[in-house]
């Protein structure tokens, strides 16, 4: 047998195991089942309009999840994403509507968002406050800075006459909506960063064992700050996509449970919250699952409350599955890790 054949055999074996028994594989199968089931049972499900709407809503969720996965892999979490994107985009839109060129406004918005990310990262890295608390407390802080000080209204329409924004939201290239293409591009870039750059590999090392990463000389603190800044910028990009596809943005988005949906996608896809595991593929699988679920429930005409209930049930199951698949080790788990 040639060496190549042997490698192939090993490769397929590994792939087979991971697809059959991992959480990712289970969720992927469930997605397929759900998709087929909805297609058969719900008459409107497989219409092209619904599938496009599904894909669109899914790509927003998916991009946010990609940003979130970056910190989750590094054993962090970022609950400020939605507040950050709302404040950044709404501020940029308001400045543009007040007369500033849209590009310039977007640039300032981006700076602000990067600043938010940096502050969060600095607090996590240097004040050593657990990320989950930092971001939980920073979410209202960021929104509180935005709402009375940078803008006061809830709804803001997209600035008129920006064609690329319209294209981004409603256009299509090669028959595929641009939104989905952006999602694909972000996924590709994220994949390349995580797999092939020193920065990406460092994130895995940090997530796997922060103490070891630090002792072996990785610049753990700067990487942490960079992580949160990148996540904030991804959130900002998502905000621009939302702005494009809705022709406007409502700052009350910050009050929704969107960020929990994002977390749901990440955890369901099989990225362990204890860090160091998973990648872009897991996010895509998780996104497809949650997107299908949301779409099905919307067509079933369930109330928002009932949807929340079902979502939280599914998320609980996902958490249990995560715990079973990635059991926490009493010996090595950090004291006070909640």
């Amino acid at each position: 047998m040639s060496v190549q054949a042997g490698e192939q055999a090993r490769g397929s074996q590994r792939k087979g195991v991971s697809l059959r028994f991992s959480q990712e594989g289970i969720v992927f199968l469930l997605t397929m089942l759900m998709f087929v089931g909805f297609s058969i049972l719900l008459p409107n499900f497989l219409t092209s309009g619904n599938v496009i709407a599904l894909m669109r809503s899914v790509s927003v969720l998916g991009m946010l999840a990609l940003g979130m996965s970056l910190v989750v892999i590094g054993r962090g979490v970022d609950l400020t994403m939605v507040s950050t994107l709302v404040v950044g985009v709404v501020w940029a839109v308001k400045m543009a509507n007040d007369g500033m060129p849209f590009g310039q406004a977007l640039f300032y918005g981006g700076l602000l968002v990067a600043g938010f990310g940096m502050v969060v990262g600095l607090i996590v890295a240097f004040a050593e406050i657990p990320p989950i608390f930092t971001t939980l407390a920073m979410a209202p802080v960021i929104f509180g800075i935005g709402n009375p000080f940078l803008f006061k209204q809830d709804t803001h329409n997209a600035p008129q006459g920006v064609t690329w924004l319209n294209e981004l939201g409603f256009g299509a290239s090669f028959g595929i909506p641009n939104t989905i293409l952006v999602f694909a591009a972000v996924a590709l870039v994220m994949h390349l960063i995580l797999r092939y750059t020193r920065f990406g590999r460092s994130i895995y090392a940090m997530g796997d064992n922060p103490a070891a990463a630090r002792l072996s000389g990785l610049p753990v603190r700067p990487i942490t700050v960079a992580q949160y800044m990148m996540t904030a910028l991804v959130a900002y990009l998502v905000g621009i996509v939302i702005l494009g596809s809705n022709s406007g943005i409502n700052s009350r988005l910050a009050y929704t449970t969107l960020v929990y949906d994002v977390l749901l996608v990440v955890v369901l896809g099989g990225i362990g919250l204890s860090g160091g595991r998973g990648g872009v593929r897991n996010v895509i699988v998780g996104t497809l699952f949650v997107g299908t679920l949301l779409s099905g429930m919307t067509i079933l005409n369930l109330s928002l409350t009932a949807q929340n209930f079902i979502k939280s049930l599914v998320m609980l199951l996902a958490l249990i599955a995560d715990t079973v698949a990635n059991p926490r080790d009493e010996q090595t788990s950090q004291q006070g890790d909640i």
Partner: peptide, 10 residues
């Protein structure tokens, strides 16, 4: 943290 966040919604 996550569990009670989910039961909060539930």
């Amino acid at each position: 943290f996550l569990t009670t966040l989910v039961t909060l919604v539930m």
